[in-house]
């Protein structure tokens, strides 16, 4: 039984085009699933739907989001918020904007433990110190008293990672957590997330457009194009024998460090055309019920 199970999830802009087209995927406890695709493929939208933070301009038109067997979409907003808060967490994309500029770091990690999960203040504070040590921040006590603007981007992303693991969630959605960082810091952060995930046994939904990241961190992956899941396979299968032509083209388009002079290989127009046709035929079928 998977901890997170998404079934036929469709999301569209209100009175606008579909953004997700009957997406189904599973994330088992302790498993890491990558969501890959181009910009606008809908990968972040899936994470947002799971966490209940879809923008007001979009609506879910069909499907189920089963969290530990319970469909979040059938619960009252209050109850679904409570469940998400108690068992899920988000590692956001941009560490510079994801911390509240007018609060100190400490409360931003500990408040949810106290307010939502009923910890004592002392236990939450001790936990925050441990967590910051775990994400290799030296002098955690000082950092907890700091304001976000006093810390570097890499430091803030470490804090956000620590904060995501604070309540020992069952599932973490990492929304392109390294995209906004320097390349040198990216690798450390990636290693940190992978290490934390392995130690805590957390299921991870990893949104990224970087196949290199997927190969390092994930066990499963879903390839999306225009809100349609084109391929759902294990990482080993994907990298050795991609089933979908678009997947193969994506793999071929990934720059290789072993051959720096090879130049960039765009996804061929024929493949894009074929995928577009697939999306159109899905929409036609959906329109005819």
């Amino acid at each position: 039984m998977s901890f997170l199970s998404i079934r036929n999830l469709s999301v569209r802009l209100k009175n606008g085009p579909p953004l997700l087209r009957r997406v189904s995927l599973d994330v088992a406890a302790g498993e890491v699933r990558g969501l890959v695709g181009e910009s606008g493929a809908g990968k972040s939208m899936i994470g947002k739907a799971v966490l209940g933070i879809l923008p007001p301009s979009v609506q879910i038109t069909e499907g189920e989001i089963l969290l530990d067997g319970t469909d979040l979409l059938r619960l009252s907003p209050r109850e679904s918020r409570r469940r998400i808060g108690a068992s899920c967490a988000l590692i956001p994309q941009d560490p510079l904007t994801a911390l509240n500029p007018s609060h100190r770091i400490g409360p931003q990690i500990t408040n949810r433990l106290v307010d939502i999960l009923g910890w004592t203040r002392a236990a939450a504070d001790a936990r925050a110190i441990d967590l910051l040590a775990e994400v290799q921040i030296s002098d955690p006590a000082r950092v907890l008293r700091s304001y976000p603007h006093e810390l570097s981007g890499g430091m803030r992303q470490r804090i956000l990672i620590a904060s995501a693991f604070a309540a020992e969630p069952k599932l973490i959605v990492a929304d392109e957590p390294t995209t906004a960082l320097d390349v040198t810091v990216q690798k450390q952060i990636l290693r940190l997330i992978a290490g934390m995930q392995a130690r805590h046994g957390t299921a991870l939904l990893f949104v990224t457009h970087d196949l290199g990241v997927v190969s390092k961190v994930c066990q499963k992956l879903s390839v999306l194009y225009s809100g349609l899941v084109l391929e759902d396979s294990t990482v080993t299968d994907f990298f050795t024998a991609p089933r979908h032509a678009y997947s193969a083209a994506l793999l071929a388009a990934t720059p290789k460090y072993t051959d720096p002079d090879a130049g960039l290989q765009p996804v061929p127009d024929a493949v894009i055309g074929a995928v577009r046709a697939e999306v159109d035929s899905f929409d036609r079928k959906a329109a005819h019920g």
Partner: peptide, 18 residues
Amino acid sequence: MNLDYVTLARTKGYGETH
């Protein structure tokens, strides 16, 4: 209300008013 840190707070289980 559309900024990232507000969105992050929502995922923590806080209600709209909070």
